[in-house]
């Protein structure tokens, strides 16, 4: 082992070659990101079209479609319904999801894997089957064209997201903390309320955001089980796309996008606030 076998390469590569890697990555990635953003940006911009057409780029800027949508009685009913559903769905999915996620992570009962599979299964099943299933099922139960029906359907679609997100938080929870609480004399209920839940809060809030956003945008199942009295915003957009061709639909779409962003930001602020306290 007397000689070294590799001498360092002394020539410095030209600047272009050194940056070639970054360019080779940066250009396609920028293009793909533009591709991702394009339809949404186009919609938002088209909603500002002063004329009743969707030509792009628009010939001016006008908020008339927003005004018309916000003052329209039909759209207002849909906005209220979607808003109500979000609250209801977040409530059910966070409660069911938190309990299930904790039980799946910490539990030792047989068949845990199976239950986990069932909890996440709605994600694997094509939405059209869930839609058909609920349509047929609700027909018999009189839940078609009803708020409770929509609430159940949205909760079903949103639950797997909540469970998955909260399970990540639960997996990070140090079991020693719960044991320490027990040695200090806290019974299982007190431990859960004072130690477990507060520490699961980030996951629960993230799960709540997913549930809210999912419910706000749910259309594939809702289309088949809603009716004239229970048209959520996405369902109304769906019908409007097929029949109406003015920018009011674009305006509603942009509002829907903004609503989701607001939900995310609000919850994010809450999370940071509670972490700082």
């Amino acid at each position: 082992m007397a000689e070294t076998t590799t001498a360092p390469r002394v020539r410095r590569r030209p600047a272009v070659a050194r940056h070639a890697g970054r360019i080779a990555l940066g250009v396609p990635v920028t293009a793909i990101l533009l591709f991702l953003a394009a339809p949404l940006v186009v919609l938002a911009v088209s909603s500002l079209n002063p004329t009743a057409s969707l030509e792009f780029p628009p010939q001016g800027v006008s908020l008339r479609w927003y005004a018309s949508v916000l003052s329209s009685p039909d759209w207002s009913v849909s906005f209220r319904l979607s808003g109500l559903l979000v609250l209801m769905v977040v409530a059910t999915t966070t409660v069911l999801g938190t309990l299930a996620a904790y039980g799946l992570t910490r539990g030792t009962f047989p068949g845990r894997r199976l239950v986990e599979g069932v909890a996440l299964a709605p994600l694997m099943v094509p939405e059209i089957i869930i839609a058909l299933g609920l349509l047929y099922y609700f027909q018999g139960l009189g839940l078609l064209n009803s708020v409770p029906g929509l609430w159940l359907a949205h909760s079903l679609v949103a639950l797997p997201f909540a469970v998955r997100t909260i399970m990540i938080s639960a997996a990070r929870l140090d079991p020693a903390l719960e044991r320490a609480a027990a040695t200090l004399g806290a019974g299982p209920v007190r431990v859960f309320l004072t130690v477990t839940l507060p520490l699961l809060r980030p996951g629960i809030l993230a799960g709540a955001v997913f549930a809210a956003v999912t419910s706000l945008g749910e259309v594939a199942v809702s289309v088949l089980i809603s009716g004239a009295n229970t048209t959520t915003v996405p369902v109304r957009v769906f019908s409007a796309v097929k029949f109406e061709l003015d920018p009011s639909v674009a305006a509603v779409s942009t509002l829907l996008m903004l609503a989701s962003v607001v939900v995310m930001v609000v919850v994010d602020r809450l999370t940071r606030l509670t972490e700082a306290v």
């Binding site: 020693a176 044991r179 040695t183 004399g185 806290a186």
Partner: peptide, 13 residues
């Protein structure tokens, strides 16, 4: 939680 013992854990918990 009924044994009335105190415990100190390795990573403090």
């Amino acid at each position: 939680h009924h044994r009335g013992l105190g415990m100190v854990f390795q990573n403090y918990a």
